[in-house]
Design a protein around this nucleic acid. Structure first.
Lengths: 209, 209, 209, 209
DNA sequence: TATGAATGAGAATTCATTCAT
DNA sequence: TATGAATGAATTCTCATTCAT
């Protein structure tokens, strides 16, 4: 018999709270992925979650907070999935390949959340009219990828090219996949990833001679 | 009594009608490009056009009809711009290069309409929830580009690759440009086009030996 | 036969528009006076007006605009009623008496609008939390009355007193009447006015010897 | 078994209970005074009190009960402050002067509670729409003051005037002070009281000869 | 054709109140 | 007692669409 008699009620509360929030976030992801951002009203999310609308607004007083939670959740999951795989590679070419392959693998595993994320990226706007996932977010991802590309150029693995355009092109090739999946759920992501990896391997490598 | 006092009145009507519709479509493009699809209400479009809301609904009983007209207008303009330039090239590689360069040149010349088109592509949904610019539209563009790519493979100019993935990647690289422009209006499109052309030239060409 | 064939359609429109707005403002006055500011929702106003809620928001996109219209209407009516009567008096004492009597007469004639105005003054708050009829408004009325009082002091009709406190006290004595009326509709306003006039005549006049 | 091991447990409870209620009432006063009646929700009061919302509803099942408690508390404090001071005076004129001066002194010492009380008086409404601080409450205060005024008339200190109107005017002059304070916290209450006392001394006193 | 008034559905948000733990 | 989750009604505002003139 363990001494640990404490039923950690506080943690239980936190846990229940976190579970509710997670449930709402998941239902919001479903709603946005399935009917689009514009139609995913708080009512619809509540209906999907099987709770009253008030529950949603109790846990997320502003709808934007749900959106922020979705962004954070999906982004964090993506980073957690991709980063170790990328860092396990030592060559720039290997890292680029794994960047593409692991992102597409992640997309394959998180289809709906990513479809929702794309919906949010394209539609969600702040009160002032600016996009919620704005230039900064894209620029950050591009900058991180450019770093990888520049490293390859410095090491001589990659040819000279505009790292900005290359990075954006790669990101767009990847970001275009969730919508494709929404339209063709049976698309072969493994193949897609392999082809993309080859395309950008050829586009970046240094001419042999 | 003057001769020819009323020449082709019906055509005049048609002409006036067409002019009105064109004016409305242009204002709708401005509205969508500037405030996003969700905020571009019929009221806003009417305000921009300097006419009463009734005029809009008279010429376009359903808002969706305006959207359809925008899509048709911009798509047609794009085809009119690109097709002769592409067909002027004889090699597959040349056509691919011109495909990319002429599309970006078109985007540069039609910034607002294309930003509006992207807004529509991402946001507009039919009553049943389906996207207005759906799989079919993308599939059509991809199919047309695939035709070009397959021709290059048949002629031996291009290596073996999955034409579907390549076509989608190229289209995504191009379609990603209008949002970039919205965020960075001074982006150098000439450079961007040149880099993209190089990327996909390297990615498609047959290994030399 | 006059050339003036113009049936002034624009004015007709303006007239219909103005009539609608006036009707809505009147119904809003009724609603606020009868159920209080907090309960006088747009729905209630629409119900009182016998129109749909949309009509209200069509003519007054923001509820605050109705409130502003009420304030302006009642204030303007009050000024129009009181000013000529006050200016017809030549002595400061006479003007003060008429100020009080004409304001109470006006209140008697415009009971409901003034009850509504008091509700608004006490309850309506801007988004930032500040009162809609704030310090400025009261200060302005007080300043105007102080001017009258100071004139009486200069001319020797009035004794020395703090004009600010006197002005505020007189205004409060008057502003307190609409709520009294709401509670006791049969209150004798003539008598009330006469008593108030006497009170402030005695309170302001210069000691005789 | 110890003697007196549990001395007056019920009273302890009562005491704790009373303390909690007092704390809640005080926080509700703060909330109403600071953000106005309409914005002072149960949530806000709970936040100010640093307790959960449930605590509020446990002690005051209906929000109206908090409001009633505030009214009772402030009114009682006012009576406790003013009554002995007034009764210490022997002349009617003296009592009237002290009535005014002690009420304003009380207001100066209890700014927030009185601002809250005024908010309640103006805004709070029962389910049936009637004001919470209604005719009866005002009538009671007026009646009490009328008694004082009539005593002065009977003793010959005061002239003949309508005691109802005079009482109401005095009360309104006093009740108008808390809102003034809310807007101008540095207003000189001593001076204000002195001026008011003079005004109503002059307005009530019997003509000398 | 043109106007703009009218409509009603649906959006987010606030809030007093209830209730299980 | 205390907690805070849950509820559902109410409120303001937006907007596509209809319609009389």
């Amino acid at each position: 018999m363990r001494a640990k008699s404490n039923p950690i009620p506080t943690d239980n509360r936190s846990f229940a709270e976190a579970a509710r929030r997670a449930q709402i976030v998941d239902c919001a992801i479903d709603a946005i992925a399935e009917m689009g951002f514009a139609k995913a009203s708080v009512d619809q999310i509540a209906k999907l979650a099987g709770v009253s609308k008030g529950v949603i607004t109790y846990h997320f007083p502003k709808k934007q907070e749900i959106v922020d939670a979705i962004i954070e959740k999906v982004m964090a999951a993506g980073r957690a999935y991709m980063e170790p795989r990328i860092l396990a590679e030592t060559s720039a070419a290997g890292r680029l390949r794994v960047y593409i392959e692991s992102d597409l693998a992640f997309i394959g595993a998180y289809r709906k959340p990513l479809i929702a994320l794309v919906e949010i990226a394209m539609n969600a706007r702040r009160d002032d009219g600016g996009l919620v996932i704005g230039p900064d977010s894209l620029a950050q991802r591009a900058a991180s990828l450019e770093e990888l590309l520049r490293a390859g150029q410095r090491s001589g693995e990659f040819r000279r090219f505009n790292t900005r355009v290359m990075a954006l092109t790669i990101i767009q090739a990847i970001d275009g996949v969730p919508p494709l999946l929404a339209r063709e759920p049976n698309r072969d992501l493994k193949l897609h990833a392999k082809e993309l990896a080859t395309i950008f391997a050829l586009a970046t490598r240094r001419p042999s001679s």
